[in-house]
Design a binder for these strands. Sequence first.
DNA 1: GCCAGATGTTCCGTTACACGGAACGCGCTG
DNA 2: CAGCGCGTTCCGTGTAACGGAACATCTGGC
Lengths: 254, 254
Amino acid sequence: MAREGSSIDKTLAVLEALAEHHRVTDIAAATGVSKSTAHRILQALVTWGFARPDGLGSYEPGPRILTLAGRVMQRFDPARQASGALHALCEATGFTTHFAIRSVDEAVYVDKQEGRRPYQMPSRIGMSVALHTTAIGKAVLAELSDAEVLAICRRTGLAPRTPRTLTSEEDLLAHLAGVRALGYAIDDEENEPGIRCLGVAVFDHTGQVLGGISVSTLAMDMDLPGLRSRAPEVIAAARDVSAALGAATPTARR
Amino acid sequence: MAREGSSIDKTLAVLEALAEHHRVTDIAAATGVSKSTAHRILQALVTWGFARPDGLGSYEPGPRILTLAGRVMQRFDPARQASGALHALCEATGFTTHFAIRSVDEAVYVDKQEGRRPYQMPSRIGMSVALHTTAIGKAVLAELSDAEVLAICRRTGLAPRTPRTLTSEEDLLAHLAGVRALGYAIDDEENEPGIRCLGVAVFDHTGQVLGGISVSTLAMDMDLPGLRSRAPEVIAAARDVSAALGAATPTARR
DNA sequence: GCCAGATGTTCCGTTACACGGAACGCGCTG
DNA sequence: CAGCGCGTTCCGTGTAACGGAACATCTGGC
């Protein structure tokens, strides 16, 4: 990114890089800006609280990122608007339900409601998940064209998370065709061993796919046919969520 | 901030303002940059996913802020380093324990471990809390000079959150003198009605106060003398957390 | 229904500052 | 002790950030 990208782009790139790197040299390499530019941006991030010097010449993310995210979550309309419908789905099925928003090439959980089961899911609000391995992610991908899906795959790769993860573009595209036909996606231990989810896309008021909702269960607690039998409730809840978000006709669009 | 502050400062200011404002004009007013500058920065934030256009000419925070915070939390050393000591304190007392980091004029929860009680605290990781109303916040303030405390009070105000909140600078300073003498702070329904907490400051490897840990209980579940009797365990745990963070002598400094 | 005012968006001339290469200081290692 | 790598600082250069003005659109009051 040397001599490339605006000052704004460089600032955001350094902010992002700080989540993975601590040393000035590594941040410069990861972002393509020069060492002195990285250093100068880091000083500004320290001033704002987005970075902290560790006292040894390296830097780490500052708490300001967390307070900003917390504030955003407090005011994030989609999560609040969806919470009623998500809670109703959780009560009706008894399973843990999630609402995640697409964020460029991944999704981030913005709501999670614990089901009435004697176990808890390892997911948490704020956690990022891959699109190709999760029910919500695949539901989102199914709303995109094959060309858009392939572009995402090429940027992110299709890393296996379990032995059941779909790792070829052909397999994923074929799978997504099936998701489009069904109107929902299934993560059958593709993201986390022992966990099975069913997800449906949700749309915002512009009709664009925003993210999705899902129900999650231990594989030993619910078999595939049993999970599929809950699909109509999840589809109805996704429609309610989309309606709450102002979507006119929240059906799958092609 | 017109012609004032670097491009980096303006970018971060707009990013922050976006958590409270949606319209370009309001963001410009809140940050002091011109409408065209605010608009230009917003376009870059949209490109990065830090902002989303709402389709009606306004903007809202984008999911990228949440995925970045999630990634920071995954790698945030203090929370991971503290988690063993925090867990031990939770097991020993049976109460919900928190770890929060000071973030300029507030604190943000970076860890929370649920106690073995038949109730849950409304707090959540990522949530910001005021310094003057919480046990951890007051423990942090007690590590600062009166001048620094007054400067913070003037920036934030001393808004009442419950009828028991300390809302005058004199009362707060007197209270903090007591906190220094005891080595711990008590939030006696000052932040949330019906909730009582005991908090102790923790220090980082440079000896600076980083934040604090606390135990929290329903007021009806534990009276004040009972809570005070647990202070030595919290103080010991805070020492363990500080040691884990590399602090040499994590005692209250003056 | 019309018009004034407010807001979002775009344009562009000016100049302030972002940029990065070079240099310096420091620490580590062989 | 020399060489290397890294963090930090400096400064000359040139370009991109800046914001005022203009335009398009929307809203609300009369």
